[in-house]
């Protein structure tokens, strides 16, 4: 292929959409990481599988918007469970997260295997939400994902001041009259939305990588939140596009793991080579 025109229209649209999804995941993930809620996103991600299967069982449809609405409902439900467990039991945060993650993922797997054991027509392909598979995306689906991602980025950018304040110093934010809980839930909901949007590309098991690794890598290079958001977006974009391209080139290679590998590579570079915070710089500094 030596010109853009040689790439099929559908592939091109999917590639652009995945780029936007990757960018948005990195941006939104920054506040998950800064607020120390990275694992909550992972619990939400694992819960999406149950949501996808349940949406299919309930509606009998398997178009992407229907399945992703189911995924979003499941993600928010799992986060709701986390809030309830934290509030009404003495379970510690990490244990509560692990509990919600494994239980909700278990439900998803049971539903999925129950469907395929009964040979329900039309259920085939749902297992692609486990590890991600972009080849099946239509141009329309891809555009939907891109539009939602762009909207999420705009919301984060508009609320940058509020999100930074609440993430840095929630007590001061509350004392000065900001509705900390509302802003907190909004941030978590945005992370959940991005986890759902990233689902077709990266899959339920690994989609968290898209909202966690780029922010952590970006933090190495900068000491300012706005710069961190942009860098995380770019790293997420490169990881998502790289992962999709590699899995398109190699038959039967799942997209999710490939994205994670590319993202991890970028993280490794950031970890070692970043000025000031990087491993080499710190060794030299000592």
């Amino acid at each position: 292929m030596n010109s853009l025109a040689a790439i099929p229209y559908n592939t091109l649209v999917v590639a652009v959409a995945v780029a936007v999804v990757g960018f948005a995941s990195g941006v939104v993930g920054c506040f998950g990481v800064l607020r120390r809620r990275a694992l909550a996103g992972d619990a939400a991600a694992h819960a999406t599988l149950a949501g996808v299967v349940a949406a299919f069982v309930v509606t009998g449809r398997r178009d992407l918007p229907t399945l992703l609405v189911g995924a979003f409902v499941a993600a928010m439900a799992s986060l709701g469970c986390l809030v309830v467990i934290r509030r009404f039991t003495r379970t510690r945060d990490d244990a509560a997260t692990a509990l919600v993650l494994s239980v909700s993922f278990g439900i998803g797997i049971v539903l999925l295997s129950g469907l395929s054991a009964r040979g329900i027509p039309g259920a085939g392909g749902l297992e692609q939400f486990l590890l991600g598979h972009t080849a099946a995306l239509t141009a329309t689906d891809a555009i939907t994902l891109a539009v939602v991602s762009a909207a999420v980025v705009l919301v984060v950018w508009a609320g940058l001041k509020e999100a930074t304040l609440v993430s840095f110093d929630p007590a001061f934010a509350a004392a000065t009259g900001w509705p900390v809980a509302v802003i907190d839930y909004a941030l978590v909901a945005l992370v959940a939305a991005m986890v759902v949007v990233g689902l077709p590309a990266a899959g339920a098991v690994l989609v968290t990588a898209l909202v966690v690794i780029p922010p952590v890598a970006a933090r190495q290079w900068t000491d300012r939140v706005p710069t961190m958001l942009i860098l995380a977006g770019v790293i997420g974009l490169v990881a998502a596009v790289g992962g999709v391209a590699a899995s398109a080139a190699v038959p039967r290679l799942a997209t999710g793991p490939t994205i994670v590998l590319v993202a991890s590579g970028l993280f490794a570079v950031s970890f070692f080579c970043a000025p000031e915070r990087g491993w080499f710089a710190r060794r030299r500094g000592v």
Binding site: L34, K161, E162, L165, F168, F172, R224, V225
Partner: peptide
């Protein structure tokens, strides 16, 4: 946290 001194003081005006 990735903020500088000015960023934090500005939070007093939010």
């Amino acid at each position: 946290f990735p903020v500088n001194v000015m960023d934090v003081v500005l939070m007093g005006t939010y």
